[in-house]
Design a binder for these strands. Structure first.
Lengths: 162, 162
DNA sequence: TCAATCTGGTTGCATAATAAGACTAGTTTT
DNA sequence: AAAACTAGTCTTATTATGCAACCAGATTGA
């Protein structure tokens, strides 16, 4: 069959998913954000098959999300570390967590809570906002083809032709 | 092999990915947000195999992201519409787009731009923010086990044991 | 009107991705 | 020095995806 790649699509969403959208990838990134650095961390935390984990880690390294560096603690085994590019996936991870907390919560409640280390407050919702900072209604989010000046259909509302 | 499901994990991120994390799912949701409602829209836009599309659409309906409703224009063919639950995936979609624009842009540039329909301004970045609305450094985002009072390791910094 | 086309699938077959477990060379612990 | 651990690899089995053919009902065009 040869699973189709999204890498030749022009859409940024597709291009992102091509790098981090395969099964397990985003959970590996989650664990990396929570401090996992070694093969065994990911393997134990996720229960993923080792061969699959090998492939996924290599893909993330190739995609520039992770780097493999010499261990900081003198061990002979390398560490996988998030790159800047990888760290900036945090909004995606946080919005996934936020949605799951609201719409797909586990009977026992969520495992993690996110807060502002400066103040201790809970994080403000990850949500589209206007310049001032207020969250906006989804219906106010407009989408347009790049370069187009006029505001065509609404995000979440426009109809495709035919 | 039997692909492992994430649905019994407690983590909200995993639970969300279980519903929308399979190959094609988020692109289908993207298209739904851009106005696609019918089988042919998704099929034409994505170039996905028809049997796979059938499975994906049914999964999204089962997961409460889409509903199948009678066509609004009198056609005999049903429409797939986003539910409220589905519409609230917008922050995930927008953060994927934002990351891709920055880190995985197509040579020809992005296809879409997002703006505030009220003002015409570009959207403010989807990013973790403090109560006041200012974007915060990722290093200031803390994560803790649910219920725990003390702030343990940083998000993006904490080390797992062993 | 009525043949041609479109729509939303289903079915069968080929291949790729994932899972599970055995195995291994090198590392670390006891 | 033996035992256990680490980060894989290899083999085998099953599922997921892709592709093409097919089909019944709806819609369109001449």
């Amino acid at each position: 069959m040869k699973t189709k790649s999204f890498s030749d699509m022009q859409c940024s969403i597709a291009r992102t998913l091509d790098l981090v959208g395969s099964w397990w990838s985003l959970l590996i990134i989650r664990d990396a954000m929570l401090g996992a650095t070694r093969f065994k961390h990911f393997q134990k935390s996720l229960g993923i098959a080792k061969n699959t984990l090998t492939v996924r880690l290599n893909q993330l390294v190739d995609g520039g999300i992770l780097t493999k560096v010499a261990a900081s603690d003198g061990s002979a085994y390398d560490e996988y570390q998030l790159t800047e590019q990888g760290r900036e996936l945090a909004p995606i991870i946080l919005s996934l967590a936020q949605w799951g907390d609201k719409w797909a919560a586990h009977p026992n409640g969520p495992t993690f809570e996110y807060f502002d280390r400066q103040t201790g407050d809970d994080l403000t919702a990850i949500w589209p906002r206007r310049a001032g900072g207020e969250a906006m209604a989804l219906a106010d989010v407009g989408v347009k083809a790049a370069g187009t000046p006029t505001p065509p259909p609404n995000f979440l509302e426009g109809k495709p032709n035919s």
